[in-house]
């Protein structure tokens, strides 16, 4: 295979990853890791490095579009980033002490449970903020086909705890845990689904960028793989953000559940075969 063709195939894979990431609030690992390891038979460490780059590109690319449209809730994102970043450091510190494959299997089960919960949840907005959420000015409005929709936020403390857990998981497993972030906002804090996924998109970049610094130094990031990842993902994320604006929440929930369901099986499989 020529280098140009190889780059083009990865570019297409990255485009899909970016589009899926922008629509679901999840990173790019779901598409790129299997494509690079199973499809091309390359070393998983290069796949991880490439998917980290893809996650950062998805996050910044999609967030740039969603902030412009006024969907992302930056205040919720900034506040919860305290939880995800501190959790990630705890996770990285304890990662050597605990059996990673066991955590991967556990995470897989949590994802399966989340997939079912997300599918069954009815979209209902609460009108007012809880007192603590009001102090942090968390509620807001977002544009929909029916005009601007306003929403309140509650259970900030519970959401913060789940976000810490999301951070710890990403620290241990070395993957962004966008799925847990979305669930924490959607189910715990009652943030509207589109606001949850787009705010998760916005948050993913920060924790991923911090770990990418370490992986760059370890040589996980190859220029030949990063090239299609950056360009493909950014184009895909832009396309995805256009689709999300007009998409029905019902379909976005189904897509999200399918993707995290697949992630769940991948996690459990990797856990059983000790790949993680």
């Amino acid at each position: 295979m020529s280098l140009a063709l190889f780059t083009l195939i990865l570019l297409l894979g990255a485009f899909c990853a970016g589009m899926l990431g922008a629509l679901t609030g999840l990173g790019g690992g779901v598409v790129l890791i299997p494509l690079i390891t199973l499809g091309f038979g390359y070393d998983i460490r290069y796949a991880i490095g490439t998917s980290l780059i893809a996650s950062i590109a998805t996050s910044s690319g999609a967030a740039a579009a969603y902030i412009k449209e006024g969907i992302t809730n930056i205040r919720i994102g900034m506040f919860l980033e305290i939880a995800t970043t501190s959790g990630a450091i705890i996770g990285a510190a304890v990662a050597i002490l605990i059996p990673t494959h066991f955590v991967a299997m556990l995470f897989g089960l949590v994802l399966l449970f989340s997939a079912v919960m997300t599918l069954h949840k009815q979209e209902e907005h609460i009108a007012v903020n809880s007192p603590f959420a009001a102090k942090l000015k968390m509620g807001g409005t977002y544009p929909s086909k029916q005009g601007m929709v306003s929403y309140g936020v509650r259970n900030v403390f519970g959401g913060y705890l789940i976000m810490t857990l999301a951070g710890i998981l990403s620290g241990i497993l070395g993957i962004g845990s966008g799925a847990v972030k979305v669930v924490a906002m959607d189910i715990m804090m009652r943030v509207p689904f589109k606001v949850s996924t787009t705010t998760s998109n916005f948050m993913v970049g920060v924790t991923t960028a911090a770990s990418a610094v370490v992986y760059l130094q370890r040589g996980y990031i190859q220029p030949g793989l990063a090239l299609p990842a950056i360009i493909g993902v950014l184009l895909g994320a832009m396309a995805g953000s256009k689709i999300l604006m007009n998409a029905q929440v019902k379909w976005l929930r189904i897509l999200f559940s399918i993707v995290i369901g697949l992630m769940a099986f991948e996690m459990i499989y990797n856990g059983i075969t000790h790949k993680l």
């Binding site: 280098l3 780059t7 038979g41 070393d43 460490r45 290069y46 760059l216 040589g219 190859q222 220029p223």
Partner: peptide, 26 residues
């Protein structure tokens, strides 16, 4: 960078075994 890269490099580098990216890229 990609345009230059595709002109300067012609074969797919070996990604099957992990050697890590060259030191100058880290």
């Amino acid at each position: 960078g990609g345009i230059l890269y595709l002109q300067q490099v012609h074969e797919i580098p070996d990604y099957k075994t992990f050697h890590g990216a060259a030191a100058q890229f880290r």
